[in-house]
Structure formats: structure tokens, C-alpha cells
Design a protein around this nucleic acid. Structure first.
Lengths: 277, 277
DNA sequence: CTAATAGTGTCTATTAGACAGTATGTT
DNA sequence: AACATACTGTCTAATAGACACTATTAG
């Protein structure tokens, strides 16, 4: 027979969460950055690539596979975002970086141990802040996006030594014809982390156009050429200079600093213009 | 001393999930629809309102408060989306409706019972499909959006008998100046469901502009006037006819059906044009 | 001088906003 | 005929795309 409670206090005192099946959660982080590779010709600007942080697993499951940095949520102490921050601090020693919740992945068999639901986060960082440290098992991989064909997206991740090829199929959903489910064709990253990589990069691409998100990946001072390169690398296409400058001009402030010693015309350094400044 | 495993199978056989603190999850659903209210004047078109489904809680916690339909995830049997579908079927008897993951809410004290993380979903439905059934404790509430001032959003939900006023503060986040956290100023809905209502409506507003999402709330045949009204109600502003028709024209197909008996000029009925049709 | 990038002016094409007009059913 | 909505033509404003040109440094 069920007990009838008169007050919320009384009800809560008797409540036993353990009487129900519970589960574990993790926070996984897709840390995205844009790297500069120096180029032999002293006159040329450095080439930029989008890169993501991966960690080599040294435990089961998926031992020795690469995956995104992540960790189990402590349900008594922290939120998922705090958990993500903690993991990021542990792996990269960085704090105070951009974090945004991306998506919650919950396929029943995504973790072979037990039911684990994972909430993924996008983190963005200016590569210049990252010279210092890092877990020896963590490494940035450059991202190469291939032309999509037959609703299959191919992505290649490479750190100079190893290359990981991802292949993801877009499967049409119901009724309207512009919505997809994503399905791994190769489990080359641990868990379903290939889906996180794709979804995160797509989100970043979209947000470039209608937010100021890009400035989370820029140093305090930057040239418009550098900023444009970051856009081009993320959007994976060339932009026209005058159009780019028109679009960006209200978001930046010109400073009196300039670059020098680059083998070509120097460039004015700009800062991000915060709204209401 | 820690045991060293030689294979993933061996490791998994010994794995005990219960050795770690676990938690519960729920799926909560924001079911959005556009209702038609008949108007006294026989000549006039019916007035449209955006409405959301709420359920009156008949158990602790938050007994007798309104909340979004939701339910606990069974970690052994279902995904969060399947859980959302199950709940929706239970409350409205509807299946086969648009569902989209919105956001995962995980404030430590959002549920007074224990740690409960909630993944919220947007569901969309054409109100005409909804004449039938419904849990007697469930009811649609019309949504009225007030002008935002001082970064406070006020929303009023009303079902003709009861009115619920929500008030949510937007708190600026770090670095870039276009990102906010949302904070309830009134806990007039159970849990943090006011935040879900706001986030869901904002998401719907945005998606109207770059997806075909609206057709999930339309019947098979509709006039362009009705479609425009749905846009206007969701975006909360008037649109100009010629501009609207220009934008929508590639997404719809004219049929040879027409309306009649409306006290004014009849209108051509259109259908949604699926891509590659 | 040359290679390379920085930065600008201007023309054109496309898209969005605004308004005014015509069309056509019901009562 | 009058009302209310359906539907269209066209002008204007704003935005995006394209190209060509000038400017300026290190070596």
C-alpha cells in the first residue's frame, strides 16, 4: 500500500533514489583551436589549420584508441559544465576558456561497460595560450574536411605521425527533408566521439555567422588577415577581402599597434569590440 | 592493489557500475503548437496563438504546480528520445511527431529529491491532430511574450482559467558579449521548466528562418495566409505579404484545391514541397 | 626592384522592405 | 455593394559578390 504524504518535507525525507535504476554520466569536450604552421618562404604568412585535442586511452575500454578528453560526472558535487572544466584543467592546465554545451549522446550501447550518457561540450582556445603543458597522452590533430558525397562525410585527423579517418553517414529523418541522424561508418575514435567532432565543427561553422564566437579563438591583438584566415579555415572556403572587412568592421576596433618584420607590408592590429563599449 | 586486465572482455566481465555514484535522468518535453481561436465576425480569419502543453503535478515534489510533461529514463531499456516519445504517447496519445533535443539541464538542486539531470526536447504538432484525447491533468496554455527590458524576459501562459507568469533574467557570460545564462526570477512552473519554455521558443524562432521546421506544425493542406500567420505568431511580428511569399515560394507546391465559404475571397491550398521531389 | 600581403573604391547582382493596387469570394 | 482577405507589380534600400587597383614593407 502506498503511503500518502501531507507535505513536501515529509515526502522528501522518505525518498530513496537508490530504489530506482540509475546511470552514469560523462562530460566530453571537443577542444577546437586554429594552429599556425610556419612555411618555408620567409615572405609568406603562416598557414592555418583547424585542430582538435585528442587523448590516447590507456585503460579499457577502447584501450590505445584516441578519444576526446572526458570524465565521469560526480553527481554529488558538480554540474556537467564544472565537470568539463575540471577535465580540461587536468588535461591542458587551462582554465577560463569558452565552453558551450553541444549535445547529449545516449545510445544504449555507446559505452560497453554500462549505460553511460554523455553530454558533450565545445571548448575554444587561442593556440597561443597553449605553449606550456599538456598530459603526455594528449595531442592536437589537424582536421581535414573532404567534399561530402552520397550523404557521407569524411574527415581526416592527423598529428603528423598518426592519421585517423572518420566516415559518417547522414540518414534522413521524418517528414521535412532537412534533418538527419548521424551514423558512424568506422569506429576509429573511441565511443561515438566521431559524431561529436562532426556536430561540434558544424555548430562552430554556423555560429561564426551570427555570433562573436570567433574571438574566443583569437589573441587580444590580431590583424584582419589573421582573423580572415581563421574564418576561412573553419568555413573551409576562401572569402573575398572587401566583403570580409565589411562584415567584420563593427566587431573590431583598430589599435595604434602594427605588425613588423614579416617580409611584406605591415598590418594594423585590431581588438575585439565588446558591445556597449 | 589494482588488477591488470589483458583484454577488454576480461575487463568488462569484472566491471561494476554500482561501485560508483550514479544518478537519475528525465526527458522533459516542450510540446508547441499553434492554435486557432474563432473570432465573432464571420468574415474574419481565426486568430492564432502559440501554445504549449503543461501538466498539473499530482504528486510531490511541486504538487499542484504546472510543469512540462516528462518522465524518468529507464536506463536499461530506452534512449532519452524514446523516453520522450513514450511520455508524449502517455499524455497526448500522439505518436510520430517532430522531436528535437533541446538542452540538458543539470543544476545540482533543480530537483529536491535527488540529483536528476534532465534532457529537454522540443515537440511540434499540428493542432488539428489533437482533437481526440489527453490526460485530464494536461492542458494547452497560450503563450504571450512581453517586450524584453533590462535583460528580463517576461512570458505569460494562460489557459483561459489560470495564468502563469514567468520572468527570466539574462545574465551575461564571459569574454564575448553575446552569450547569456538564464536565471528564473519566479518559480511559477515546477523545476526549471520556465527556462525550457524560453529556450525552446527561442530555438524554434531561429530555426524558422533556416529550416523547414514549420511544416511539422501544419496540416497537409494549408493556405499561404495560414502559413504566414504561423510565422507571425512564432516570430511575434507582422510580415509583409509579398516578402513572405517570395521567401516561402520554393518550399511549397500549389495544389488545385481551394478554400471556400469564408466570407471573402477563397484561397489556394498548398502542400509542403519536399526536397528532390 | 620584387615578392607578398594590406587595404580600398566601385560596379553589379541579389535580396529585403515598402506600398499600392487589383481580384474575388460571401452575405 | 461592402467587407475582408488573396494575390501581384514595382519601386527603393540594403547587402553581398566580384574585380581591379593602390600601398607598403623586407630583402
Amino acid at each position: 500500500m502506498e503511503k500518502v504524504y501531507k507535505s513536501e518535507e515529509e515526502f522528501l525525507k522518505d525518498y530513496d533514489a537508490k530504489a530506482f535504476d540509475q546511470l552514469s554520466m560523462t562530460a566530453d569536450i571537443l577542444l577546437i583551436s586554429v594552429s599556425s604552421e610556419d612555411v618555408s618562404n620567409y615572405r609568406k604568412n603562416s598557414k592555418k589549420m583547424m585542430s582538435v585535442l585528442l587523448v590516447k586511452r590507456d585503460d579499457f575500454p577502447f584501450k590505445d584508441k584516441w578519444c576526446l578528453p572526458g570524465g565521469f560526472l560526480d553527481p554529488n558535487k558538480e554540474t556537467l559544465e564544472e565537470c568539463a572544466k575540471r577535465v580540461l584543467k587536468r588535461e591542458t592546465n587551462l582554465s577560463n576558456i569558452y565552453l558551450e554545451q553541444l549535445y547529449t549522446y545516449d545510445a544504449i550501447d555507446r559505452d560497453p561497460r554500462t549505460r553511460v550518457v554523455s553530454t558533450s561540450f565545445i571548448a575554444l582556445v587561442d593556440k597561443n595560450r597553449l605553449t606550456e603543458m599538456i598530459n603526455p597522452n594528449a595531442c592536437f590533430f589537424d582536421v581535414i574536411f573532404f567534399e561530402e558525397k552520397n550523404d557521407i562525410v569524411d574527415i581526416s585527423l592527423t598529428n603528423g605521425v598518426e592519421t585517423i579517418n572518420l566516415s559518417i553517414k547522414k540518414v534522413l529523418r521524418e517528414k521535412t527533408t532537412d534533418r538527419y541522424n548521424f551514423k558512424s561508418l568506422k569506429r576509429t575514435l573511441a565511443f561515438d566521439h566521431d559524431l561529436v567532432v562532426l556536430a561540434g565543427i558544424e555548430r562552430l561553422k554556423n555560429k561564426l555567422n551570427y555570433t562573436d564566437i570567433v574571438f574566443n579563438m583569437m589573441p587580444e591583438y590580431f590583424t584582419l588577415g589573421e582573423l580572415q584566415q581563421v574564418y576561412e579555415v573553419i568555413l573551409n572556403k576562401k572569402l573575398l577581402d572587401p566583403a570580409f572587412r565589411r562584415i567584420i568592421k563593427d566587431k573590431v576596433v583598430k589599435t595604434d599597434k602594427m605588425t613588423s618584420g614579416e617580409g611584406h607590408r605591415p598590418s594594423v592590429l585590431f581588438k575585439y569590440r565588446k558591445k556597449n563599449d
